[in-house]
Amino acid sequence: MSRSAPIAQAAISAESMQGPVAGAESTSESVLGGGPPLDLSRKPRVAESLIQGFLFLCGAISILTTLGIVYVLGRESLLFFANEEVNLLKFFGGTEWQPAIGRFGIWPLVTATFMASLIAMAVALPMGLCIAIYLSEYAPQRTRSVLKPILEVLAGIPTVVYGYFALTFMTPLLRGIFGRDIVEIYNTASAGIVIGILVIPLVSSMSEDALSAVPNALRQASYGLGATRLETAVRIVLPAALSGVAAAFIVAISRAIGETMIVAIAAGAGPNFTFSPFRAAETMTGHIVRISGGDLSYDSIDYNSIFAIGLLLFLLTLSLNVLSQWIVRRFREEYE
């Protein structure tokens, strides 16, 4: 068999990579292997279409998952709000969450969630950003190759282990510092700090990616003008990577709001409308876990209420994630 011209003609360009080869049919008489000319492009390929259909279904499952989440949360929440004891005004206006006696104010759960997230962000954002700047601008290559896997280990530890850490290490530490009378055994401060530690790797790795993507020419220009390393990092590189860093921050907030096991173990059981970080308070996620961990009968008001909380949680985190993607798209600095 010789390398004949038709094969060379049949080679396709990178642009037409999608789908079966167009123009692969032989035009000359000297068809490979002899015989009459065949138009293979018209040949029905049932198996190929079946496979493509199956692969499309695989991709479509992700859409089905989203639809499932929206349907399930929406349906049960509607059942919850259809209850005559509940209405939106009470839900967003009340400061007491006691489904057993008909109090459905979401605020105690929301304030606890935001308090824990706020504390977590107070820990994670400065630490994560400092680590990112250190890794991207200061650390030598060798140090970086040792330190980055350590952060990956931190990111790979299951959250239930962090919860254990919060309860058996952070809480006694806080009680030792501030006094046992002030700090309760279960408190949002300890949970918040540990959530902060949990999201540090997320913030630092996303921010570091953004910082490293800034072209070196910018740094060299800055050094050439006599700027110090700090000035280059903070005034040149950081502003250039700001969209990526901001996106990292927002993803971290969303992660902190959705974090469950740490608050379920360390932040306390029972909704509590308080602004003191040293008191026990239950977050939205903690409440869902506690209620569903007990004996839960379907279509009870408890069962429906956790889906209403879940819907709120889903909308919160989804809008934060969408916001972060939008920031990256809208404010990204493009460099050649």
Partner: peptide, 27 residues
């Protein structure tokens, strides 16, 4: 449709795990 699937997958990666638990419970 394909852009929708892609965006959707990126968003699903950010959904809190407990929401998946509720999906599993209901479905």
């Amino acid at each position: 449709l394909n852009r929708l699937i892609q965006t959707n997958i990126n968003n699903l990666a950010g959904v809190p795990s407990i929401i998946y638990g509720m999906l599993g419970l209901a479905i």
